[in-house]
Design a protein around this nucleic acid. Sequence first.
DNA 1: GCTTTGGTACTCGGATATCAACTGTCCGAGTTTTCCCGG
DNA 2: CCGGGAAAACTCGGACAGTTGATATCCGAGTACCAAAGC
Lengths: 167, 167
Amino acid sequence: MKLSEGIEQAIHCVTMLAGLDEGQVLSAAALAEYHGVSASYLLKHLQALSGAGILATMPGPKGGYRLALAPKDVSLLDITLAIEGPAPAFRCAEIRQRGPKPLPGRYFQAPCGIASAMHAAERVYRSELAKTSIADIVAGVHAVDDDGAIAGRGTDFIACHARQTGR
Amino acid sequence: MKLSEGIEQAIHCVTMLAGLDEGQVLSAAALAEYHGVSASYLLKHLQALSGAGILATMPGPKGGYRLALAPKDVSLLDITLAIEGPAPAFRCAEIRQRGPKPLPGRYFQAPCGIASAMHAAERVYRSELAKTSIADIVAGVHAVDDDGAIAGRGTDFIACHARQTGR
DNA sequence: GCTTTGGTACTCGGATATCAACTGTCCGAGTTTTCCCGG
DNA sequence: CCGGGAAAACTCGGACAGTTGATATCCGAGTACCAAAGC
């Protein structure tokens, strides 16, 4: 039950990309530098987000990443699923059907109660993640950012490293 | 985001131990045989459950494991925490404080909004697991077990392999 | 026949190899820019 | 001076090692039982 650290990086990157103006992009190298993480490794997750349709890419010089959707339409669940994959954390191995003197399969048409309970908990977990969008995260940062220093650091960096593209 | 397979084994074993009569115990070897899993590996998890106070052990010949609590007082969360450990799946690396031109620490007294949201989801997940007890699981099995075949297989095995102990 | 005592066999407990997944890195395909040459 | 073309450089994309945690296993410590010997 360990969540990939790439999840955190991915969410931070998406949050930052949400601060870009229309037509701006940010390269993976810039995102990695700003967050102080490995560029190559971050690239892996950015690709996953791109493949999931959350980010859009611009190739070539002056290229980079930008959001493909509105911040309010990207939830933490979307990002998590893009990085970790859609498989549930708990997978029933049907050990109730193993061991000596197994019963005929017709007795196990109903799903295992244990698996059902674990999956129910996971559904609630995902539902909770789905409730929070990137727009909410951005709003949350602004709420505790009295003098605008945190947001200022981000916009300063964007002003230095963002590239204008013809869209 | 992969949940240990030992979790499933542990829950099944606790469920089975809940079917024991007062003063009975079941050895780790018997539990492993019944579920068709590696005895040595299962033992590791049974020790964790024992260390967490969920199971009680009886050493020596005719020894084994039994529940240390009433089935209704053992939740799926208790078992999960005993096996996986109490550490949350998401761990904030505070990458917001890394990178160039870091801000003074006083700006980061408020917890990271991303970490808060992820932890909130995890709290809901755990809360859901806490709602389901082993007694509920047992009741669920009985509810779909029309002719008692599933429960019968368990009680038959217990009749063969359980040991009476002087408590 | 009863008690004691030693041995034995079985249990759990912890320390030890093996494997998969996450982490981190590298090189290749593609595209835009840009410079240079010709008109 | 302007347009076209080719080279170059920078981007993303996917394939390749290193390290940590999960999986599987083994051997050792401890205890209850049992049998045999002594009283």
